[in-house]
Nucleic acid binder design. Structure first.
Lengths: 233, 233
DNA sequence: TTCTTATGTTAACATTGTTCACTTTGAAAA
DNA sequence: TTTTCAAAGTGAACAATGTTAACATAAGAA
């Protein structure tokens, strides 16, 4: 009874003035929102009501609404990297398998977080991306990681030698293209998603792999897929 | 002097009430606008001022703002088809060359009309697209044309036999992916665009082409590109 | 000429992001 | 302990947005 009353008292106190950790609360709620709806539909009113504050409270923590969304993008890229890049940091798997699995995680991320993916890879906040990428340029996240993986593949003799930058772009374009088409409602591939990804990756692989090597893969499916492309070692 | 006065009179008369062809004028101005800026920035105020009417005049011609944009999308797809599909309607070119050239027109369209492309292939108005596609399903525009071309290629023995739908998706995803990445500011490829497209198409081609055929192309570049993929006829 | 309808106008509305003057709170300084 | 003050909340007001409603006019049919 006493505890109950105390809780009630605290809640009432915290609802007005000095919320405690309102900034993080805004971010959390915003992420919660875009898990379900497009970021365009997120309003200050929604944020205010969800936190039990007023519409203008947010301005004590962010310069404006866009600043909150920019924060979402920054953290979103961290989440993205965390979810998608693990296989690029492994040494135990053949490189081709790393490509296969990373690509799969990429599309999976987009499918599971369509609104976040659209926010991260859409046009509207492209400027914030440039800042993020320029900061992290030397590390191994995002496109940089892909390009390095391609160069590694070329050194190992697995991938075609010419034009690593162009090759990386082609790979990214495939993954971005299929992800976008799916989450933007152009393709209803829920039923046949596995087949679509297999076809996509196989096509890509045959195109980027050096025609001088035969690839042995740790993943049972992959080596099989590569058999039609037999060439002498 | 008389003429001048008459013009003045007519203009004044036409500015108030009975514009003449205001609906088409709205559409024209909207297209003019998205040639330069994103459709998100188009407001009723802009349309009103450009036509010399009031902000609510548009409601006599469209149900609401979205209805105008839906009209833009419908016409936009017509323009898109007109610009992109001509090579798919030709019989004088080898099929592979048709793919090559159509793909090039596709990316070119996106680069020249980034805001329109984003409007046509973005998520926001996906619903209107479904209507358009369902109406035009049986004809040879858009994805249907691509799928038919793939099937033709399979019949001719040029393309891999399995999974025409998946193969068509892969091709579309490549073109959509590279287009989106470029126009949304992820890649600065203005300088090396030609090389990027060549690499993209080459990669794609090697992946989709049947490994039982050697392809002869009318375009000098293409047959050369295919030489690394030599196999017996 | 008169009536009607299409097509324009202006005024008002709710909702949006944003700013400003204010109030409250909690903690450091006295 | 009391005072002070910056941090963090409030509500009122603003302009811009899309939208609606009541009203005005032009043009053609009756």
């Amino acid at each position: 009874m006493f505890t109950l009353y105390l809780c009630y008292n605290i809640d009432m106190t915290k609802q007005h003035y000095h919320h405690g950790n309102l900034k993080e609360e805004f971010i959390r709620i915003a992420f919660e929102f875009i898990a379900k709806e497009d970021v365009e539909k997120l309003t200050l009113k929604i944020l205010a009501e969800a936190t039990g504050t007023s519409r203008s409270a947010i301005y004590k923590h962010f310069k404006n609404k866009d600043a909150l969304i920019e924060t979402l993008i920054e953290r979103g890229f961290d989440i993205f990297d965390e979810k998608v890049s693990p296989y690029f940091k492994t040494n135990t798997l053949p490189l081709i398998d790393q490509f296969y699995l990373t690509g799969k995680l990429y599309v999976e991320f987009a499918r599971k977080n369509p609104n976040l993916y659209r926010l991260l890879f859409g046009k509207k906040y492209a400027y914030i991306r440039e800042e993020i990428l320029s900061i992290k340029e030397e590390d191994c996240s995002g496109f940089g990681a892909l390009k390095k993986a391609v160069e590694r593949g070329q050194k190992e003799g697995i991938l075609k030698k010419e034009k690593s930058y162009e090759l990386a772009i082609v790979i990214w374009a495939s993954m971005h293209g299929i992800s976008s088409l799916i989450i933007d409602g152009f393709l209803d591939v829920e039923e046949i998603y596995e087949e679509v990804y297999e076809t996509l990756f196989e096509t890509l692989l045959v195109g980027i792999v050096s025609n001088k090597v035969k690839i042995f893969s740790a993943l049972p499916g992959l080596s099989k897929r590569l058999q039609p492309h037999k060439t002498k070692v």
